[in-house]
Design a protein around this nucleic acid. Structure first.
Lengths: 361, 361
DNA sequence: ATGTACCTTGGGAGCGCTCCCAGTTGTGAT
DNA sequence: ATCACAACTGGGAGCGCTCCCAAGGTACAT
């Protein structure tokens, strides 16, 4: 590799040192100016800024990372067994929100898809080598060891969605129960009498929340909850299809269904069509997520919208606030059950949902 | 991976130096082992590997980046005026493919969404500070200055899709004309007589290619091309809707339409429904992209699939090969029109498409 | 004047790694 | 035994930045 590093003229990128020389000041001063420290006189600052502009100086991030032990980058980690997650606007919403918020803080987003054991190890190593200042964890399964691994390495992390009702890590979630309540309430308000629901897998907390919301809405309306009207799906179209067929067979008088996801609603819609039931004439349908699918269904699907972009943004905000609390240094592994006095509990945020009414209900 | 990460003296992460001390060798030797250099005796290598395992050593990437001038990360850049791009499986496919290929090379993916001027500047700076070894550019407009800016900074880049027929940069594209030909050929084979097309904006090369494919297919079948059957859309649903209405008004006898994107096909479908035309009975419909929308339309849409994952992978492969040709060092800005003897022309790759036949045709 | 307190400033000391040049050792040929 | 040559190995010299301490200035009170 015969790299001729510096051409005679204009080859290499200018360094702090060169800026300092040109401005006639010391390195430290330039560093202060670049980092916006207030401890620089106005006059000197101007001098340095001129030199920076003249040279087109851009700080070398690698050097900064090495010297300061901070990287100005966070990882967005997506365990990706489920392609589902990926194609959904959900993902892109998180991405967009997180990216926008990070940009405002002049930080970078590292995207990490974890497909298998090997890639998880790879990421753990990466985190261990402190190439990122924190991690946003998305679509995590309850038994994923990743959060613990990160905590062990002293890397701050924020979850998207709780893994259980007593989530111990910082998280951002939507109010799934409230969303479900509004959906079911809407169906009842519309005069529907027999409202069923197609749920997600019960080992997912989000699915339980939505099912609970369904029950609460019925109780609030003074109706009893017929557990046979809760049928389990798995967040896939095929699962929604099966669930709907089962419902139709068991409960012919059914006139409304709340599906815990749009994708399942699409499957349910198909089953209804096959059974010759019209939507919303015979059966009203409501989904969850307000995805592209919802808009393109026939008829367009009423659905519960989550403020996804905002979730992404909020995750970043929390992550950054975390960083301020505990310096990026690897802290000793401490019993996580024992919070410190000035850190009463991990920050968390639950965002509201909104019902988008379309013609399926 | 029960690495005993920190010996008695907890706290900091082990360094090369510590590994060297423990193994009783020099820093250079450990570095060689870590980087898989062959110039180390088997015995010494074993010694070092033991020490690494014992200490749970993970190289500090920031230090490596600084010392070696290389970062083991590439940026995926998405100028995002068009949300379209983002929700589509197209994006996630590229992402998935690129991520998988990068993981195999132990490299990281930096995702950069560029929403405005400010963010573009930010990225340019970032690239200039050499925090990435290269860039994957996706969904670029023909007049985007980004490629030139990157070239100026000596940062290798690969495009997704050509900007014109004589693209000067390395790129990966699909054979859009061939895809269109197969779609239109399929419609003709099905006995359709009056086949129209809804095109994309003519200032996008991809749109022109698909329109050309449409023409070629007609000619190949021995039919003339009636230019009034080419109606311009803009890759949005609304545009597809408008275009279809125009077509229906101008050409009542029409019995097939090839849409240059699924999204436009969805709009067209709506217009057909409004006009009381059945699909595929009265009018056959074919889209392009094979997106989620295609599968969920009623009836499911026949569409042209592109090997998107593979495109992402291939982009990374090309980028890495580029890196080998020209060392990451900032090379002197050279006249780009003057290729070097050992670098005849930028690498490029055009991948084949596949027609996915569903019930809309 | 002298002292005190507070700012600003320069620059040494690393951060952990790679590069590369000697130095050391081992091998085979003379 | 001697020499040439190759194969290993150690460690100095940075990479460009931040951190931090001490030096120098300035302003005000004593």
């Amino acid at each position: 590799m015969a790299a001729v590093r510096n051409g005679v003229a204009g080859g290499r990128r200018p360094t702090l040192e060169q800026v300092a020389r040109l401005a006639g000041v010391g390195r430290g001063t330039v560093s202060r100016v670049v980092n916006g420290s207030p401890r620089v006189s106005a006059h000197t600052r101007e001098l340095v800024e001129d030199a920076i502009a003249q040279l087109g100086y851009v700080p070398n991030r690698a050097a900064r990372a090495l010297a300061a032990g901070t990287t100005d980058a966070v990882a967005l980690v997506v365990p990706e067994q489920e392609t589902r997650f990926f194609a959904e606007p959900y993902f892109s919403g998180i991405l967009r929100g997180a990216s926008a918020e990070l940009a405002e803080h002049d930080m970078q987003l590292l995207l990490t898809l974890i497909r298998n054991e090997r890639e998880r190890d790879r990421f753990t190593q990466y985190a261990a080598s402190h190439r990122v200042d924190g991690a946003l964890l998305v679509s995590l399964h309850a038994d994923d060891p990743l959060p613990d691994l990160l905590a062990e390495h002293g890397l701050p992390a924020v979850l998207n969605g709780r893994r259980s009702s007593d989530e111990s890590m910082p998280y951002v979630d939507t109010d799934n129960a409230a969303g479900a309540r509004s959906a079911v309430g809407h169906l009842l308000d519309g005069g529907r009498t027999t409202v069923a629901t197609i749920t997600g897998p019960p080992d997912m907390y989000v699915a339980r929340c939505r099912a609970d919301g369904y029950r609460e809405a019925l109780r609030t309306a003074g109706r009893g909850v017929d557990e046979s009207l809760l049928v389990q799906g798995d967040f896939t179209e095929e699962g929604g299809h099966r669930a709907m067929r089962r419902l139709l067979a068991a409960e012919p008088s059914l006139d409304a269904v709340f599906c815990a996801s749009d994708v399942m609603a699409a499957g349910a819609r198909l089953a209804l069509r096959e059974a010759g039931r019209s939507v919303p004439g015979d059966v009203a349908l409501v989904g969850f997520d307000d995805s592209a699918i919802a808009r393109h269904m026939d008829p367009p699907l009423t659905s519960v919208r989550q403020p996804i972009d905002e979730m992404g943004r909020e995750m970043v905000r929390i992550l950054l606030s975390l960083r301020e609390r505990e310096p990026a240094e690897a802290r000793p592994v401490r019993a996580s059950a024992q919070p410190e006095p000035d850190e009463p509990q991990p920050p968390r945020r639950v965002l509201p949902t909104e019902l988008v009414v379309r013609s399926s209900s």
